[in-house]
């Protein structure tokens, strides 16, 4: 009974880390970024590249099957992924914004990017599954009948640290305030002297960095595949919509609901339908609460 709660929280942590980027582009750039999944994928593959460049394996930290080599690789991969995302914004989204293209055009561009990204990864890194390192996960019984791999604790811990850092950034720094201001009222933000272009750059950097963390941890827990991020897209979107789209904390709550739903589906033997069940839950919530769980009525 408790086992699926534990599994659900781990998958919620990964979904939330990825979905923060979707939530931020949704609120600041104002479109649903269908390419977010590929940002996770690219982040995970950059991490792989760095792990092999450092050449020290992924290390260990006590019982946890990854350590400093992987964490350092992730940090560098965050930077590399951010650069890629900023270049893509500069080449594609910036001209579309300047032309005041419809939101739908941005979504379509993102949809195209998603496909291109997946296939570029296939071309460059190959389509076969890859791994950071070989390890045998050892589960520990934390409660009677509830077994968790120490790595899962580490993942939840990293996610909590990331959310706390994000919270401090959004509430305690000037750029965080500026981002919230642009998300609420872009015109007033400009009148106020906020350079929206700088805010947009930070939006991409934060979204891409957290997505890299999500992608790398997901890859560590499972495997690297070109479709790994794309498979996360629907759960991430569902978390965004469930949480009420306009609210970062709502997205985290939404991820929790989605993670637990997925875990229940798996425990009922419906693993194959996981994404479809997530989607149904999202539709049902939308039917009764169009503004999402924490959203405000427009």
């Amino acid at each position: 009974m408790m086992q699926f709660v534990a599994d659900g929280i781990v998958s919620a942590a990964l979904i939330a880390l990825g979905a923060i980027g979707i939530s931020m582009t949704y609120n600041i750039l104002r479109f649903a970024n269908f390419a977010q999944g590929e940002i996770l994928t690219i982040g995970a593959y950059f991490t792989l590249l760095l792990v092999s460049l450092i050449g020290a394996g992924i290390g260990t930290l006590g019982p946890v099957a990854f350590g400093w080599p992987l964490l350092v690789s992730i940090v560098f991969a965050m930077a590399a992924t951010s650069v890629v995302v900023l270049v893509v914004d500069w080449l594609l989204f910036r001209p579309l914004r300047n032309r005041k293209a419809a939101r739908i055009t941005l979504i379509m561009a993102a949809f195209g990017l998603s496909l291109m990204g997946r296939n570029l990864v296939t071309l460059i890194a190959g389509g076969e599954p890859q791994y950071y390192a070989f390890f045998i996960p050892k589960a520990i019984e934390i409660l009677p009948g509830v077994r968790l791999v120490p790595d899962d604790f580490a993942i939840i811990g990293i996610a909590i640290i990331a959310f706390a850092a994000l919270f401090l950034f959004m509430n305690r720094t000037s750029m965080g305030r500026q981002m919230r201001a642009v998300s609420e009222n872009p015109t007033l933000a400009r009148i106020n002297g906020i350079d929206v272009r700088a805010v947009i750059r930070w939006t991409w950097i934060i979204g891409a960095s957290l997505a890299t963390v999500a992608g790398a941890l997901l890859a560590h827990n499972t495997q690297l595949r070109p479709e790994m991020g794309f498979d996360m897209l629907l759960p991430m979107f569902a978390a965004l919509i469930l949480g009420g789209a306009s609210n970062l904390y709502g997205t985290i709550l939404g991820a929790l609901v989605i993670g637990l739903t997925e875990a229940i589906a798996v425990s009922l033997g419906l693993a194959g339908y996981r994404a479809a069940i997530t989607f149904m839950v999202m539709l049902i919530v939308l039917l009764f609460r169009p503004q999402g769980l924490l959203g405000e009525k427009e």
Partner: peptide, 12 residues
């Protein structure tokens, strides 16, 4: 410049 409407960041 203070616009006529929506001239404060309501959520802040």
């Amino acid at each position: 410049y203070v616009p006529q409407t929506e001239n404060v960041f309501a959520k802040l």
